[in-house]
Nucleic acid binder design. Structure first.
Length: 272
DNA sequence: TTAGCCCTGAGA
DNA sequence: TCTCAGGGCTAA
């Protein structure tokens, strides 16, 4: 499931491949993942160059010539893959973008169709809420700002970390991994945590995300690099998906509970 | 704050 | 055949 490190990895790969490339053709096989009518994509993209590739939270951002921006959210199972342009679309492939002078096309594939492809016109007020209301990236905050973001919140820390309006980029895996590294129980309420512990959480989040990016993200079920390769960070997970196994720090059995409708994995001994 | 919805495949 | 996984949103 693509969270910040997975999207960052894809953005880096795409930067090498399509920066400056000109879209020659877009084929849409399934409208349901588009934010606006397909005709808008079909008329506004062909002939335009990709001017920048970046990431914001879990969104991939492609800046297109003449002030359009294409935002891609991979949802749970979204993939961006390179395929030969002439190849027929196979199951779950919803969009194919071809580029001038390139034999390979960029294909958006998404089994569960939780992802979304959004085209905006570059004006900030045109951003849909999901993007416009994103919170800051974890490393763009000073320690004081990070602490200020959480110190008055009374909800459970795990649920708050998943809220993209507070902090952008964390999903279920990296929220659990960061809380373990910070030694904080996912059920804790941040207004009862002192400043050093909250500051430690920011360090843990940034450290976890950077380490995951170095390993090309986590491939659990469906996440793949654009060349089809897998990320490696799943081999370094300390708690996620490890219910009943020993904590790598203290040996206690990892527990699984449900918070905000999501599985939460934690070590009952290391995380207080 | 929680349950439900969207969706599909995997596993029981 | 049923249940579960979950990102982001909505409704109660």
């Amino acid at each position: 499931m693509p969270e910040l490190p997975e999207v960052e990895t894809i953005a880096c790969e795409l930067q090498k491949k399509i920066l400056g490339a000109q879209v020659s053709k877009i084929q849409i096989f399934n409208d349901s993942i588009l934010s606006s009518p397909r005709a808008i994509f079909e008329t506004r993209l062909p002939g335009k160059k990709i001017e920048a590739v970046s990431r914001r939270g879990k969104f991939l951002r492609l800046d297109i010539e003449e002030q359009s921006t294409l935002w891609i959210h991979l949802g749970m199972t979204g993939q961006l893959l390179w395929k030969e342009a002439g190849e027929n679309a196979s199951l779950h492939e919803h969009v194919k973008v071809e580029f001038s002078g390139r034999s390979q096309a960029l294909v958006y594939r998404d089994i569960r169709k939780f992802g979304e492809i959004i085209l905006t016109n570059g004006r900030p007020e045109s951003l849909p809420g999901g993007i416009g209301r994103l919170g800051p990236e974890p490393w763009d905050l000073t320690e004081m700002e990070f602490v200020g973001l959480f110190k008055r919140r009374t909800g459970r820390i795990k649920s708050l970390l998943l809220n993209q309006r507070i902090l952008a980029g964390l999903g279920n895996i990296y929220a659990d991994e960061s809380l373990h590294r910070a030694g904080i129980d996912p059920r804790r309420r941040p207004h009862r945590l002192n400043r050093p512990r909250l500051a430690g959480l920011q360090q843990a989040i940034c450290g976890t995300l950077r380490e995951a990016i170095r390993h090309g993200g986590s491939s659990i079920d469906d996440y793949l690099h654009t060349d089809g390769g897998r990320g490696e960070f799943q081999n370094f997970h300390r708690v996620y998906g490890r219910e009943g196994q020993n904590c790598l720090l203290c040996g206690a059995a990892i527990r699984r509970i449900v918070l905000a409708g999501r599985s939460s994995f934690f070590c009952p001994k290391c995380q207080k």
